[in-house]
Design a binder for these strands. Structure first.
Lengths: 206, 206
DNA sequence: ATCTTGTTTAATAGTGTTATTAAATAATGG
DNA sequence: CCATTATTTAATAACACTATTAAACAAGAT
């Protein structure tokens, strides 16, 4: 029960790392086995197919990404809520910077994955409810005069675009502009501040 | 000189389409040949390696993407210039919606490609000059009081984030929310308007 | 008509990929 | 200790991929 789970676990973790780094098409089960240091057949013993292994990871990562939104408390002030959300995702994504690209990448490149995801995620009541709650709140805040008139989906996309792109382009920023880890940290702090300014200005009423 | 160029051309066009759709790792020279309807060796006869074929396309697409910025006239009003830029890219990307993802994808997934790109693109004087001109203008406009204090890079990233993400997530929007082409067109018009509002509010002085 | 040059294909080497199978090894329970 | 079960590996099937080579084919020039 030790080495057993140990290898199975290490395969999962390594697969995770490699898929996140190189994507589904760019990672082979041989790569994974090599990185773990075990026989390639073992990957298939535990997960049967590369697709199954991938899906498990993909689903988990997708949930990790959406969980916070599902449970977000849309209390009184939407502007404050928005700041909390950005704050949370900046922390979370600083620890997992390749997460958003990973999910986006596979959804964009693979139409079958989109179809599959449509069934599993979009038709999930919890998620539907969360979106309607959010949508209602936006409309209420607009009526209240606490928010500029805006489509809920637009608001969502604006926040997501600014936040996600910061992390998606991070490897490019690092490598192309040859930045050190310390510089990257400063840069991320700066980006977060900038995004909050944009959102505050962009959505304040009047 | 007819059938000659014809096949060479069709190989290039097909490669372009497939690379844009599935990425480098997801497209094989066999796929390309199959789609063209020619022998697979012909792809190698004209382009020698998959990597060379890809690089030609990648470089061309990257230039296509950056060309406008290199020649953008930063005249009097920055805000107006910004609107022209967004307007241009929305037209251009509506015709080539997979372009930004294609470039981003390869840069994020492939570190060697980043290194190569760093040499070819970043160390290009025209590009350097264009960026400095832009950076200077931003600082001048801030001093003039025509623009909120902001780092030029932040301004650039905000514009790029909002614009690019609209197109990157387009397949997801289409498929996951099951939208028709007509709905997509309306959606894009809406996004452009929304982005212009965000930018105007986000960067107007005071 | 044949020589030359450029185009296209068939064949294939060489490698890498996913996946399965059977055998070896380790661990566990009776 | 032995039987059973779970883990791990070696071997390999079956196929896909990149790239090369030599030969077939077509055109135009001489």
């Amino acid at each position: 029960m030790n080495q057993i789970t140990q290898l199975e676990q290490r395969i999962l973790e390594t697969a995770e790392r490699l898929f996140l780094e190189k994507g589904f098409a760019g990672t082979s089960t041989t790569d994974i086995a090599r990185a773990v240091g075990c026989n390639q057949a073992l990957v298939h013993y535990y997960y049967r197919t590369k697709e199954r292994l991938f899906r498990g990871i993909f689903e988990q990562k997708m949930n990790l990404l959406l969980d916070y939104l599902d449970h977000a408390e849309y209390d009184g002030d939407l502007m404050q809520t928005m700041e909390r959300v950005v704050d949370f995702y900046f922390s979370m994504l600083s620890a997992n910077p390749r997460l958003p690209f990973f999910v986006m990448n596979e959804l964009v490149l693979n139409a079958e994955r989109r179809a599959w995801i449509r069934e599993v995620f979009i038709r999930d009541e919890r998620r539907q409810r969360a979106y309607y709650a959010f949508s209602d709140l936006v409309h209420r805040e607009i009526t209240k005069g606490a928010l500029r008139p805006v489509e809920p989906l637009d608001l969502l996309l604006d926040v997501v675009s600014l936040t996600v792109m910061t992390f998606v382009t991070l490897p490019i920023y690092q490598d192309l502009l040859e930045k050190s880890p310390a510089e990257v940290e400063t840069y991320l702090r700066g980006r977060k501040a900038e995004i909050l300014i944009m959102l505050r200005r962009g959505f304040s009423p009047a």
